[in-house]
């Protein structure tokens, strides 16, 4: 079995994995990183979104072996030392979640969206989050949250989003 070395939320892990093992199953079942959930099997819902070397990927469509030698940030690694990332704070403040199942992926995708566009319009946020589905909120408060976080992050641009 291939051996992989993957840094996840600041900790480096070395493991033997089946070549077909999905990254999300590696995170959840081998590392206990259960904060990243699985919502579909066709890469449509985005609940499993994580950052791979700082870029958002759907971890259900990446094999664990493809992450060898690379760095993953999950929602659990966003706020080192218990401090919340501005995006997490904004989701809370704007009531951008209800059941919360899509939330980890939505937060990670939103962070990547702001990396590409620090000041997105409402339409740009809606287009940018098209790959992340939510069944509870109707998205309106998610859009508000991303705008709030964008404003906060523009005022404190030095903040590092990956751990």
């Amino acid at each position: 079995m291939p051996r992989v070395r993957i840094k996840v939320d600041g900790v480096t892990y070395e493991d033997e994995v089946e070549p077909r093992l999905l990254l999300v199953h590696y995170l959840r079942e081998r590392l206990g990183k259960v904060g990243t959930p699985v919502g579909c099997d066709t890469t449509n819902c985005g609940a499993c979104t994580v950052l791979l070397d700082g870029l958002s990927v759907k971890s259900c469509s990446v094999l664990a072996v493809q992450a060898d030698g690379r760095e993953i940030t999950t929602v659990e690694g966003l706020g080192p030392g218990g401090e919340l990332h501005p995006m997490q704070r904004a989701f809370h403040t704007e009531h951008a979640l209800q059941c919360g199942f899509c939330t980890p992926g939505m937060i990670m995708a939103s962070i990547d969206l702001l990396r590409e566009n620090a000041d997105p319009s409402e339409a740009e946020i809606r287009e940018g989050l098209e790959g992340n589905l939510c069944r509870c909120t109707g998205y309106q408060n998610i859009v508000r949250a991303v705008r709030r976080a964008a404003e906060e992050m523009r005022q404190a641009p030095e903040r590092e989003v990956t751990s």
Partner: peptide
């Protein structure tokens, strides 16, 4: 009121049934 539930949901400290091992 901002929701009490959010603290675990926005940080991934959740207890979905599929998390159980």
């Amino acid at each position: 009121r901002r929701r009490s539930e959010d603290a675990r949901l926005i940080t991934g400290r959740t207890q979905w049934t599929d998390n159980l091992q």
